[in-house]
Structures are given as structure tokens and as C-alpha cells.
Design a protein around this nucleic acid. Structure first.
Lengths: 167, 167
DNA sequence: CAGTTTATGTCAGTGTTGTTGACATTCCAA
DNA sequence: TTGGAATGTCAACAACACTGACATAAACTG
């Protein structure tokens, strides 16, 4: 180690930004930002005794109407028991409907009802408003960098799911 | 609306990136990336029947040795009862020690033991490795943008806590 | 057709992490 | 010194994740 900067990630063209200290800052930024990211929907959901799990289900059903339970499972990365509990309440409350598949009758295709779509819009609006404000603050180049780093942080299977959703 | 691009966030110099679609992609990227962000520590923690809450406590005690319970509460944004349960197990397992304050005997000052520091290092190494890889993939400008957007996404109080930790 | 696999749903049990409520201790100021 | 504010602890409960076992129905395969 000729430079005497051992263990700090120095290597070639990437200068001065792979120190443990810089990485730690990124980790903490991620922690705090995620709290902000979920804060607004969480507030709305708490009023109707729903949680983040319900939000995620609603979001991806809205994103891909007619998606199957299995499909949703692979996107959300939870167990079917866990997802089923959430879906049961959403269907019971009339926010989601589940239709038996025509080609494959084992499958259940999921759709939002008007009521479900209304909640989705409320939650999305709140989350997008914050995102929009953050994007505006940060500027276009920052946004590009933001997305690039986030994608690089995903596991391969998440990256596939994300790419698939991007179309 | 002369351009006929209503509701897509067009305004001045910020071009083509405040559409609802672009915002949705950012939201989903954040969702998947956070899973990746926590995946490695989660795996390690699961083996010792600890969870993310333990990780967070250990992280910030390591970051600010001698911090008080109250201080930690304001950073973590949970109730003191919730934090206390986690601290109790960590203290019981000999990873953290709690010293009664000298000036104010109501306060408890928290420190990692050698064993606690060892676990912190293991968890940090795993998380930093992924962060480092993501940063390397994305490049320096992207990293700058990443941090800028994340900070813009925080609430004011989180931004304060984050700035305080940055020194 | 018989047997296997796939897709889904359910029941029971457990663990982590969040919550509120009640309470003890300590400090400080009227 | 008495009452309130701050700090921290214990108990009970809810949400949401997990595993394991099992049931049902439909599709596939030989």
C-alpha cells in the first residue's frame, strides 16, 4: 500500500468517495430518507387501521391490474400467508376483487374496485407529492444519479422485477 | 394549458422528468432498493434472532458512544418502550452497557462492549460492501445525485438528525 | 386414467417491532 | 418542600412478518 490509505477503498479513477465514512453517510441517508418516503402514506393508512403491507398490495395491483397472487408474491417478496392475510382484509372491505382465471382456473386475478382505486390515488398522491418536491429540490442530474444508485443497490431478482414494471 | 401536457409537472427548466410515470418509477426503485439495502444485515441478524431494530440501535450507539436513550429515541423515531425492549436484550446479551449519568442520574449513557462492536463491524461490513459496489457501478456524479435526492426526501427533523451525525 | 405438480387458501404457532398505559426515579423550580 | 417535568422501565396488546402442515382444485404427464 504505497499511499498509506489502507482499507479506504482507493482504487483507480474512483477518488475520495469510497471511504467508510462516505459509505456510512450514504447508509444513514438511506435510513432517514426511507422514513420520509413512507411517512405520508403511513399517516393516511393509520387512520383506517391499514399498514404498509396493504399499501404495497394496492400499489402493485393498481400497477398491474389482473395480476395473479403468485405474481404479486414474487414482487413483494413475502410469504403467501402474509400476503393472504392482507388480501383477505382488502377483499372483505371491498377494495380489491379476485376473479378466478379463465384459462387457468387455479389462478386468481386481482383488480382494484373503484373504492380501492380511490384509496390508491390518495396514497399515491401523497407519496408523489413528496417525491416531486425532492426531485425539484435536487434537479434533473441528481435524479438520474439517484435512480442509477438505487438500481445498483438491488439484488438481481429485484432488478428483474423493477425492469419488468418499467416496461 | 397551451402545450396540452396537463398534469405532468412541466414547469420551466425541469423537463420531462416530473411526470407521474417518472415519479412512480422512483417510488418503486426506492421500494426495491431498500430491500437490497437491508438484505445482507437481515440475513446475519436472523441467525442470532435479532432484527433490524437491534441493528439500528447498535449502529447509532457505535456512531455516538455515550449517547442517551432519549437521544437515540429522537434519531430512531420510535417510542421509548419499543427501544427499551431492544436495549434490554442487547444489554442482557452483553453487547451494550448502560451507565447512569454522572451529572443527571436520570440519564443512561450507552456504549458498545467489545462483543457489540464486533457485531456492529460484521453488519456494517456487509452493508458497506453492497453500498460500495453500488457506488462503483453508478459512478461519482450519480452518488452525489443520490445523496442530494435522499436528503431532499427527508422531513425537517430527520434532516437535522442527519446533519448532526455528519458533523 | 393415475399420479404428480402447480396455484391458491387456511389454520396454528412464533418472533420482532411497533403501540399505549401505568409507574418509578430523579431533577428542578416555585 | 412540594409539584411538575424529564427519563427510563415494565406489562399488555396489535400489526405483520415467518415456518409448518394441510386442503382443494386444476393442470400436466406418462
Amino acid at each position: 500500500m504505497p499511499e498509506g490509505r489502507t482499507g479506504q477503498g482507493y482504487s483507480g479513477e474512483s477518488l475520495l468517495f469510497l471511504t467508510d465514512e462516505q459509505l456510512r453517510q450514504g447508509i444513514e441517508a438511506m435510513f432517514f430518507a426511507y422514513r420520509g418516503f413512507t411517512a405520508d402514506p403511513d399517516r393516511i393508512l393509520a387512520e383506517m387501521s391499514y399498514g404498509r403491507a396493504h399499501h404495497r398490495a394496492i400499489h402493485f395491483i393498481n400497477r398491474s391490474p389482473g395480476t395473479t397472487v403468485n405474481n404479486l408474491l414474487s414482487i413483494l417478496g413475502v410469504t403467501k400467508q402474509s400476503l393472504n392475510r392482507v388480501l383477505r382484509t382488502l377483499i372483505g372491505d371491498g377494495l380489491v376483487i379476485s376473479k378466478v382465471g379463465e384459462l387457468d382456473k387455479r389462478e386468481r386475478h386481482l383488480y382494484l374496485t373503484d373504492q380501492g382505486a380511490a384509496l390508491e390515488a390518495t396514497l399515491s398522491d401523497a407519496q408523489r407529492a413528496r417525491m416531486r418536491a425532492a426531485y425539484k429540490d435536487a434537479g434533473p442530474e441528481a435524479v438520474q444519479g439517484f435512480k442509477t444508485v438505487l438500481e445498483a443497490m438491488m439484488d438481481a431478482d429485484m432488478r428483474r422485477a423493477y425492469a419488468k414494471l418499467r416496461d
